[in-house]
Design a protein around this nucleic acid. Structure first.
Lengths: 191, 191, 191, 191
DNA sequence: GATGAATGAGGATTCATTCAT
DNA sequence: TATGAATGAATCCTCATTCAT
């Protein structure tokens, strides 16, 4: 386990923390461990973050934001519901494949009493988009009338399930698999 | 937060641990806290469990077993794939509704380095059953040819997604919702 | 430096803390040092006190109380102002001689932002007594009309000065010296 | 709390240190805090002082010297003991009023294991002067025969008592009060 | 068997000091 | 010469575990 590559110390600390928190969990990771992996002194962590808690929070916010930036993008104009669905699902998959550790970290830390406001804002964006997607799809007769949270639960749940199996090596998150599940899910929600 | 009800001390300890580990996480829960909630002395924990780790492990095994006992039951003989699917899905739902804390606990802790052997056995049973279900369904033309792990990822992921939203109060795990998702999932996997 | 004698751990901790805080100061004394001198484990300190701060506070309150209990006693009824003055002054001296460390500790920690209420109550008793002493003495023509705080400043200041020199070995707090200063002070305040 | 005014950096550092050490205590004050208040970089402290300890020592010596320079001046030639006493007492009072922070600092820190040699020299001067004052006063029949340290204890103790009450706002160090105590003390030591 | 006070290793955090810029 | 980021030893405090009662 070499120190994470060079660059801004703050960035290195966040990278080291991501790796360790994902591998071992937040509580099981000691601050000096993060420092070591980041290639900085223990005390330096506290130049960039107020506390260990502040560090996870920053990490969580950072990745949550990147996730939403990657996933909640506009589908092509005049896209069919099928195309829009594909757009969102593949965004999710792209993120999970590009940043599997971050994806797992976000998933595992989802529950902590952290940051209600700061990170719920984009969460609400997500629900708004889901709602718009469904109401439009229902109107055009392409999509079943289901609750937005159900759609999200289905999509994130499926992705998380895949990620878990991929992590155990029982599955590869390749294009074929991604499209395969995409079809399953689309069949599940189409009218 | 009163001590959990009377009964076998070992059982009371496991119940207290389930509540606390689920609410606060394993590392954030102190052993004396578990003892207090269980209505026993701190030292008594160690009469029933070798260590705090042994306690989570026992807790995990216990509930994993109950989960499999409840979910991996035989569907009615000569059931169609649709009926069999419904059978398994509702088993999962029944467990999550009957024991939401245990469901969340299993979910949150399934990543820890715990017990490779002891709890993987039933996991393999699960995959065997999924495999059998699919191969039979494919043969009878009812089910799409998908990988067993994909089926499991889809089902457990969806259930977990629901549980998460239910926990946040944005969803109720009632019969209607359960069946709604069941339909979605079935449409997703049917041939 | 042997551990302080046997007895109630809480008492032993307070005794050890008194010695060390007086010798080295509060901030310069590490908690494990107190524990060692008290003959207990570091962690045990925290069974009896919430924090290091709580410990000094308890110590301060304890000794402040003992000080007032020893000093603010009733002089003989119908005592002259001279006798009453002697009574109070000798009470102060007796405390300083019986508990020189405590006397120095109280003196040195006097300024900290500690416990306004808890320890100011007796302080106010002291001022009330000084006030009564002066007003009675003025009425009987025995005492000069001075402000109560001036009387206290004079008495405590003098005692503290003596204590400081006694600590440096340049003075002995024997009866002769005590009476000598008593005469000085009395001459200073008598009408 | 703005940085202390312009001027020689060394001077600014000493001024900042005086304020902070007096307000918060030596151990409770961080070096970067002193630097900030002095308007210099942390590292610059170490260009002027070898260590934090060296800084307090320099500060202590500096003010102790100023104190003695202000207090241990020659009284008018052929002054009576009364006049000489007044001269010294008012010198002490003038210092405390001109530099209350320094006065409190000297008082609070005079116990530390600091500088045996460097600052004891003037202390001895003080005792020599007290001794001379008493022996002369005794000879002329103006002063009671008391030990020099007792005289010093009385005077410094009284001044310190006043300072403490002044700091709490229960007393003002005005001319009237100063003279009032002067009378008390003189009555206490006169033959 | 049950208890809970005592233990002390280990964790988060602070801060005097250094040194590259 | 001045700077202030970086260092890591030292601090306070927690908590899993033991054991005398």
């Amino acid at each position: 386990m070499k120190p994470v590559g060079a660059g801004d110390p703050r960035e290195r600390i966040l990278d080291a923390a991501l790796e360790l928190f994902e591998e071992q969990g937040f509580d099981a990771t000691a601050v000096p461990e993060v420092a070591k992996r980041a290639g900085v002194a223990t005390g330096s962590i506290y130049r960039y973050f107020d506390s260990k808690d502040d560090l996870v929070n920053a990490l969580y916010r950072t990745w949550k934001q990147r996730y939403y930036d990657m996933v909640l993008t506009e589908p092509p104009t005049n896209a069919t519901a099928r195309t829009a669905f594909s757009h969102y699902w593949r965004g999710m998959a792209a993120f999970s494949r590009a940043h599997p550790k971050a994806a797992r970290f976000l998933d595992l830390h989802h529950h902590r009493g952290y940051l209600a406001e700061e990170s719920l804002a984009p969460e609400r964006d997500g629900q708004a988009i889901a709602e718009a997607f469904i109401s439009r799809g229902v109107q055009s007769g392409e999509v079943r009338k289901i609750a937005p949270v159900v759609l999200i639960a289905l999509m994130t749940g499926a992705m998380r399930g895949l990620l878990a199996f991929a992590d155990k090596g029982e599955l590869t998150l390749d294009d074929a698999t991604i499209r395969n599940i995409e079809d399953c899910l689309w069949n599940g929600i189409k009218a």
